[in-house]
Amino acid sequence: MASQGTKRSYEQMETDGERQNATEIRASVGKMIDGIGRFYIQMCTELKLSDYEGRLIQNSLTIERMVLSAFDERRNKYLEEHPSAGKDPKKTGGPIYKRVDRKWMRELVLYDKEEIRRIWRQANNGDDATAGLTHMMIWHSNLNDTTYQRTRALVRTGMDPRMCSLMQGSTLPRRSGAAGAAVKGVGTMVMELIRMIKRGINDRNFWRGENGRKTRSAYERMCNILKGKFQTAAQRAMMDQVRESRNPGNAEIEDLIFLARSALILRGSVAHKSCLPACVYGPAVASGYDFEKEGYSLVGIDPFKLLQNSQVYSLIRPNENPAHKSQLVWMACNSAAFEDLRVLSFIRGTKVSPRGKLSTRGVQIASNENMDAMESSTLELRSRYWAIRTRSGGNTNQQRASAGQISVQPAFSVQRNLPFDKPTIMAAFTGNTEGRTSDMRAEIIRMMEGAKPEEMSFQGRGVFELSDERAANPIVPSFDMSNEGSYFFGDNAEEYDN
């Protein structure tokens, strides 16, 4: 993207840094990872977990959730003011799984939030270390993106479920800051804005008074975040219109849905970061690795190297396929839920299948599930090659597409044709070009129609051997075009429920 120079890199967003050079960025990201790792080690000690239990991804998720809940100030305040039966607002906890007599047992633990905050700050040299908290939120978000298709949420806001490739980060909490905003897809931002506008339509006082002023500035800020994701002048001009509207209503909703559809071809720039579970960072720190000293990046080879040398386990339900569970977590670790499966298959070195073909449910185990038949197995999170994460949407291309997802959002900077089903997408653009945004709409449609099938995206960008740390010898991959490109292809993934 041309304006790259004016933006802070995501590592800076990730670490609240002012302008830093590459070495400083690597050190501050490393410091953040160190903090998460030290916190995780301490929690495993508190909970008396064995090494194996500490490497269980379900335990990692519970521990991450506990610290996120302990620092969720708004919710904590709300819980104190609106006490609900049987919930102690000062405590947080969740299921911890232990191996007892050759069987997995679930144990519900409860801790004072104050105590968890103390352990977290102690692991982070006394700081609140917001960057580390956001990092864990993005890992949870990436896992949700890989596990669930947001059909219901899309339909509720009037969008087409086939636009799911635009929904990265749709389950990120509001408090995820600049680093969170960077990884949100165009569809996620559109959905947040539509929800806001709908509230304004239904509630006369939404934009009024002292609160209304705050609401208005939040609305304009979200519009600017979305505008910054678009790469064409016409899309940005249309966002200006939406932002400046005196009284946002149905016309703005129409414009936003139009823009979301246009992003299936004229893709937005959305950041991709490899955020790993805390149970990967903990053992690495415990083994003596100093992330701050060595430096770390979320968008280069580092996460690949770390996963190459990590042992992570997962509980497996009786009829689940461990290899499929591994694929789910591998995609989440690489922030690749909406990437082209052919690119992923090449990088991973084994075939990556669409969601609907995987015999696996989510990673988390519900409290009512029976533990008797639970097994555990090693997650295979290694890769054959590594590639640089991208934040450009890439230019655009036609490809055989599917009944489910009709476009992709690249996660890796790797040369390819970008699949999208042009006739299906263009069919949504018939007729409606009147109104105050008509010239911009016409211009956007013209650009979409001009998108050429034979153009290559990320020209000359390749993948790298894991021994090639400096990215000196790019390998331009070859793809098996007979395979499906979309992950949520004609899909039956479970729906995400809060």
Rank of each mutant, 00 (worst) to 15 (best):
K7F: 01
A22G: 03
T23S: 15
R26S: 15
S28E: 00
I33S: 07
I36N: 00
I36W: 07
I36D: 08
C44F: 04
K48F: 06
D72E: 10
N76G: 03
P89G: 12
K90Q: 15
T92Q: 06
T92V: 03
G94M: 12
P95Y: 07
V100E: 09
I116C: 15
N124H: 10
T130P: 08
S141L: 03
N144K: 08
Y148E: 02
C164S: 13
S165F: 06
L172F: 07
A179Y: 01
A179P: 03
G185M: 05
V190T: 14
R195W: 10
I197W: 12
R199D: 02
I201E: 01
N202V: 10
N202D: 01
W207D: 09
R208V: 01
N211F: 10
S217P: 00
A218W: 08
A218G: 05
Y219L: 14
I225V: 15
G228I: 06
F230P: 02
T232D: 06
M239A: 15
E244S: 07
N250C: 14
F258W: 04
R261L: 04
S262M: 08
L266V: 15
R267A: 05
L276P: 10
P277E: 03
S287R: 15
G288H: 08
Y289G: 04
D302M: 00
S310K: 00
Q311M: 00
Y313C: 05
P318Y: 11
K325T: 11
W330G: 08
C333E: 04
F338N: 11
L344F: 09
S345M: 06
P354L: 11
R355E: 11
R355W: 12
G356T: 07
K357A: 08
L358H: 09
G362S: 04
Q364Y: 10
Q364A: 10
A366M: 05
A373W: 10
A373N: 15
S376W: 11
L379S: 08
S383F: 01
R384K: 15
Y385C: 05
R389N: 11
G394A: 04
T396P: 03
Q398S: 01
Q398G: 00
S402L: 06
S402D: 01
Q405N: 02
S413W: 10
S413Y: 05
L418E: 00
L418S: 02
F420G: 01
T433Q: 08
T433L: 15
E455H: 12
R461H: 05
L466C: 05
A471G: 02
M481P: 00
Y496K: 09
Y496H: 02
